[in-house]
């Protein structure tokens, strides 16, 4: 199980949003850190096959990104996502399950399981417009897991979650990462250092650090802040 990213670049006119990133991700939780505008979301969108790279390639076990087979094994939680206002939480999960190609019975079972896992059982029958920010985020996490994806891409997944929900989320992701590839992006260092076995740090479209982070290297947050001292030019 390998996600191969080979010299992936995204350029808009003269601006290079992602600059020749190459890496191979295996099973485990990979934390992607970077300040706003570093290129994390662009990079994640390319991994999800919803943005075509200007150069390079992305593949998973031989399947090119953006193909139907690749999308079948993908789960994605965007940084911002909407919802159809007349949907309840359960309707939303069933709708997303249909788009992911799950048959009706399995979709129902999976939706029920994920509603319980994300503690949305009491709100599942209510319209999403009545949900708090944290509830919507949990719903978003639930839809990402519907098809038991081999590649789970989460963009700022803990936004809006309270501390208890954050801890619960970390447990779920850590467990999931044991058998799948999880790529989790955030600019909150504490979300990653407890969960990710592999740290990726982006700055101005480039990877400036990759690898595990051990105690011998010092404080991850201090290292991270030092990289972005002085702000973007």
């Amino acid at each position: 199980m390998e996600l191969k990213i080979d010299r992936v670049t995204k350029q808009y006119g003269s601006k290079i949003a992602v600059d020749r990133i190459s890496l191979t991700l295996g099973r485990g939780v990979h934390g992607l850190l970077g300040e706003n505008g570093a290129g994390k979301t662009t990079f994640m969108r390319m991994i999800c096959g919803i943005l075509a790279p200007t150069g390079g390639s992305i593949s998973f076990d031989g399947m090119e990104a953006a193909t139907e087979g690749y999308r079948s094994v993908l789960g994605y939680l965007p940084q911002d996502f909407g919802y159809y206002p007349d949907f309840t939480g359960k309707d939303f999960l069933l709708y997303m399950a249909a788009l992911k190609g799950l048959p009706k019975r399995r979709a129902g079972e999976k939706a029920k399981e994920l509603i319980e896992m994300t503690a949305l059982k009491e709100a599942a029958g209510n319209k999403i417009k009545t949900y708090s920010g944290g509830m919507r985020q949990r719903l978003g996490i639930a839809q990402a897991l519907l098809n038991d994806p081999d590649i789970l891409v989460l963009d700022e997944p803990t936004a809006g979650l309270d501390p208890k929900e954050r801890v619960r989320f970390r447990e779920v992701i850590q467990e999931y990462g044991k058998k799948h590839i999880v790529l989790l992006s955030t600019h909150i260092v504490s979300d990653i250092e407890h969960v990710a076995g592999n740290i990726l740090m982006m700055k101005r479209g480039q990877l400036i650090y990759r690898g595990p982070w051990g105690e011998e290297k010092g404080d991850l947050e201090q290292f991270y802040l030092k990289q972005f001292e002085g702000g973007e030019e």
């Binding site: 096959g49 139907e68 965007p78 996502f81 909407g82 919802y83 159809y84 788009l99 992911k100 098809n147």
Partner: peptide
């Protein structure tokens, strides 16, 4: 325009039936 109106595009792009 429904997907665009309600901001569902990004989720719908990344599914098997895109």
């Amino acid at each position: 325009g429904r997907s665009k109106i309600y901001g569902m595009e990004e989720l719908e792009y990344a599914t098997r039936f895109s």
